[in-house]
Amino acid sequence: MNRVAEMETSTRWLRRLGIIGLLCWFVPSVSVLLVLSVLGFCEFLLSDSHPFPGDPPAADMLTEVALSGWLFILVGYVPFFVARKESDRILRLWRRVIPPLILLSFLAMSSALAQVGRRHWGEWGLLKAMLQDNEARVRRFSSRADGALSEEEFAQAKAWLLTQPATFHFDAESEPVRIHMRRTVPPYLGVDFGQGQNAVFDPVTMICIYSD
């Protein structure tokens, strides 16, 4: 009996801690979701159809911010599930407010998520494959196990790439984009979109990590 009573006491204290956690997490969670929603709608209104990710690459930055924000909300669900059997106002408020705001933020961010996501299929998928293939070939010039290039090896790889047909044409664009050596650290390759617009993409995630 004493053991059962101890377990009940521990459970009760754990649920109270969950309630306290929700009290601390609720206002920051609402703020995060509202900010994500506003940023997402602003990006949707200001975005264009040009394949250049922009300077700065707004969709990529917002995607990373959104994932971080939703991770923050997910952490808040830990105390929620701990205290979910309690009858408390903060639990009812969380159930009524947080899920709709999550949905709103996701809808607002859908444009930015789509811009990054589509880089894995269709025309962008072909460009991704070209970047991965040439990145692997460039790294073969390295004498190190990690694929890092010395200054001499970088110059050799750059000279080799100039002899390759490293261009890609988007159907909606009049001029092709050109793949070229852009950085001295991996990933080495950048994409020249013309008119002084350049971007570097992670060859796996296709997140834009640099643009100008």
Rank of each mutant, 00 (worst) to 15 (best):
L22P: 04
R118N: 01
I98W: 08
L149S: 10
E153A: 13
C42I: 11
P176L: 14
G125Q: 09
F81Q: 00
F26Y: 15
M61S: 07
E153F: 11
Q195G: 06
A155K: 14
P99D: 13
L161C: 07
S47L: 02
L34P: 01
R140K: 15
L91P: 01
F106L: 14
A172K: 15
H180F: 15
R178W: 13
V116M: 05
W160A: 05
F44R: 12
R89M: 02
R140H: 12
R15Y: 01
L91F: 01
L101H: 11
G196W: 10
L127T: 04
I98S: 08
R84E: 02
L23R: 15
L189W: 03
E153Y: 09
E151C: 04
E152P: 00
A59G: 00
I102S: 08
P186M: 08
P57T: 11
L107A: 10
R89S: 07
E175H: 14
M206R: 04
S142P: 12
S47E: 07
P53W: 01
L126E: 12
G117T: 01
C24A: 14
P57E: 06
I19D: 06
F44L: 11
T9P: 00
L91E: 01
S31G: 14
L67W: 13
E135D: 08
F80R: 03
F201Q: 03
V185F: 14
P203S: 09
V204T: 14
L14C: 05
L126Q: 12
M109D: 01
D55E: 09
A166D: 02
H169F: 08
L127W: 01
V185P: 00
G147T: 12
S29E: 03
A157Q: 04
Q156T: 04
L14E: 08
N198A: 06
M7H: 12
P187T: 11
W13H: 10
Y77C: 03
I209S: 13
F168T: 04
N134W: 14
S150D: 12
F170A: 08
L113R: 02
P100E: 08
A136Y: 11
P28S: 09
S37D: 05
V204A: 13
D133Y: 03
A66C: 13
Q156E: 15
W13L: 15
K128V: 02
D48S: 15
R84S: 05
P57K: 06
R118H: 09
N198L: 13
T63I: 07
R15T: 03
L127Q: 04
S87Y: 03
Q164H: 01
A159Q: 13
P100C: 12
E6V: 06
M181C: 06
L34V: 15
P203Y: 10
